[in-house]
Simulated scan of single mutants.
Amino acid sequence: MNHTYQAIFLDRDGTIGGSDTIEYPGDFELFPYTQEVIHTFKSNDMSVFSFTNQPGISRGDACEADFISELNAFGFDDVYLCPHDHTEGCDCRKPAIGMLKKAAIEHNLDLTKCVVFGDRWTDILAAKTAGCKAILVQTGSGKISWDQNHFTSVIQPDYVAATLKEGMTWLLEHTCITR
C-alpha cells in the first residue's frame, strides 16, 4: 500500500549513529549517510523527528539540553526525548507511546501516516502500538534485537533494513510522493 508519510521518527543510539551503547553528546558520531537520509526525507516534504530514551539524564550522567542541542544541530525538525529511567514508570519511555502522542498533538500528525526507524524492539513496539509503520535497522542493537524477538513477538516490524539508508530507500520506493 502506498502512502505519503507526514513524519519520520528516528531513534538516536545505534540508528542514526553511535553503537549499541549510549554515547553522550560530544562523543556521539552520526553514521556517514545519516545527514543525507535526514535531508532526503525533508526534501520529500516529511518532517523528521528525533525519538530517543536517554535515562542517563535522570541519573545525572548527562544534561537534557546537551542532547537537544546536538540533535537540533543534526537537522531534526523537533526532538522527543525521554529522560527517565525504566524504573520511573513514565508514559514517554519507549515502548510507551508518550513521545509519539506528544509529537502528534504538537505537529497535527496522523500517526498512521508516520514511520519509526529504530534498532531496538522497544522502538518497534512503540511504533506499532501507536499505529506507525516500523522499520528495524540492523545497526547498533538491531541484529541482536531481531534475533531475540522475531520468532517470539506477536508485533513485527514492517521492514528490516541493514542500515537507516537502506530503510529509507525501501520506504521511498514504497511511497507515493506527491508534490
Rank of each mutant, 00 (worst) to 15 (best):
T4W: 11
Q6F: 01
Q6I: 00
A7H: 01
L10E: 12
D11C: 02
R12P: 01
R12Y: 04
T15R: 01
P25G: 13
G26K: 08
F28L: 15
Y33M: 11
I38A: 11
H39D: 15
T40L: 08
K42S: 12
V48M: 02
V48H: 03
S50K: 06
Q54R: 11
A62R: 04
A62F: 06
A62S: 12
A65T: 11
F67V: 04
F67D: 00
L71F: 05
L71V: 07
G75F: 05
F76R: 13
D77W: 09
Y80D: 06
Y80C: 03
L81E: 02
C82D: 14
P83K: 14
P83V: 10
H84M: 06
G89D: 11
D91K: 11
C92Y: 14
K94I: 03
P95A: 13
P95F: 10
A96H: 15
G98F: 13
M99R: 12
K101G: 00
K102V: 00
H107E: 09
T112E: 11
V115R: 08
D119W: 02
T122H: 09
T122I: 09
T129S: 15
K133C: 08
I135R: 05
I135T: 01
S141M: 12
G142V: 03
G142F: 05
W146F: 14
N149L: 00
H150L: 10
T152D: 12
S153F: 07
I155P: 00
I155T: 13
D158F: 08
A161P: 05
L164R: 06
K165P: 02
E166R: 08
G167W: 03
W170P: 00
H174R: 12
I177C: 06
